[in-house]
Design a protein around this nucleic acid. Structure first.
Length: 221
DNA sequence: ACCCAGGGTCATA
DNA sequence: TATGACCATGGG
C-alpha cells in the first residue's frame, strides 16, 4: 500500500507548501463535534453559516438540542444542507452524549471503546467518528476522507476501491501514533484539496503532487 | 445550466 | 458485500 517514508514525504511537502493549519476550526470540543456532523458531504462555508445561526440563537448547547423540536433546529441549520436529516442527527448525538455522561465520562474511555460507541449513534459513520476522536478527544486516529483517497490515488499508492478501515489501518500502522501529526496531516490534505493550480512556477499545488522520490513498496501491502 | 462539496443510512440483490 | 437512491444548500 504505502510506506512510512512515502507518507512522511507527502506530509513534508504539504507542510512546506501550506504551513501549520491548527485544526479543527471550532471554539470548543462541543462545537467541533456538531461541526463534524454538519459538514458531512457539505462545503465548510455552508457549515459556518449554520454554526453562526446556532450561536446567534443560543442553540449551540445541550439544553437547546435536547429540548427544541426538530423543525426549529432544521430551520437554524438550513444553510448546511440536508437540514432535516442533520437536525435528527444532531439530536441523536445530543441524546447519546447526555446518556454517556458528556465529555468528562467519554474522555475516560479507551480509543476503541469510544470509537465503537460513537459509531453506535445513527448519523455518525467512520469518518465523522474519527474526526471527533482526533480533534475533540485528541486520540491518535487517522481520518480518511475523499481527499485522502484522491491524493493517494494521484501518487499511485492505492487502487481507489480500498475500504475505509483498510486505509485507516494503513496510515496507523505506518506512522507512530502522534496526535499532532495526524491532526496536521488531515488538515493539510483538506487544505491542499482547496488549492487550485496557480499556473505559476513553484505553484504549491503542483509542488505537492509531483512524483515522489521514495519508491513504492513492491506489491503486497 | 450544470457540478460538487471535509458522508451516512437504508433498501435491495 | 456491494451497489443505488436519497438527503439539499450554496458557490464555482
Amino acid at each position: 500500500m504505502f510506506s512510512r517514508q512515502q507518507l512522511l514525504e507527502i506530509f513534508e511537502r504539504l507542510y512546506s507548501a501550506y504551513g501549520p493549519q491548527h485544526w479543527w476550526p471550532a471554539d470548543s470540543p462541543y462545537e467541533m463535534m456538531l461541526g463534524a456532523i454538519l459538514t458531512q458531504n457539505t462545503a465548510w462555508t455552508n457549515v459556518e453559516k449554520a454554526l453562526s445561526n446556532l450561536k446567534s440563537a443560543g442553540a449551540l448547547n445541550q439544553t437547546f438540542l435536547l429540548n427544541t423540536d426538530q423543525e426549529q433546529l432544521a430551520k437554524l441549520i438550513r444553510p448546511s444542507g440536508y437540514f432535516n436529516i442533520k437536525a435528527q442527527r444532531l439530536q441523536n448525538f445530543a441524546n447519546w452524549y447526555q446518556q454517556q455522561g458528556r465529555y468528562k465520562q467519554l474522555a475516560r474511555l479507551d480509543d476503541q471503546d469510544l470509537r465503537s460507541r460513537l459509531l453506535g449513534v445513527n448519523g455518525i459513520g467512520p469518518e465523522t467518528a474519527d474526526d471527533i476522536l482526533l480533534y475533540a478527544f485528541q486520540r491518535p486516529v487517522f481520518v480518511i476522507d475523499a481527499y485522502t483517497r484522491r491524493l493517494l490515488l494521484v501518487f499511485g499508492l492505492i487502487e481507489g476501491k480500498e475500504a475505509y478501515e483498510s486505509l485507516r489501518r494503513g496510515f496507523e500502522s505506518a506512522l507512530e501514533p502522534d496526535v499532532e501529526l495526524f491532526q496536521e496531516f488531515h488538515a493539510l490534505i483538506v487544505r491542499h484539496a482547496k488549492q487550485r493550480c496557480s499556473g505559476e512556477p513553484e505553484c504549491p499545488h503542483c509542488c505537492v503532487i509531483a512524483p515522489l522520490q521514495t519508491r513504492g513498496t513492491p506489491k503486497s501491502g
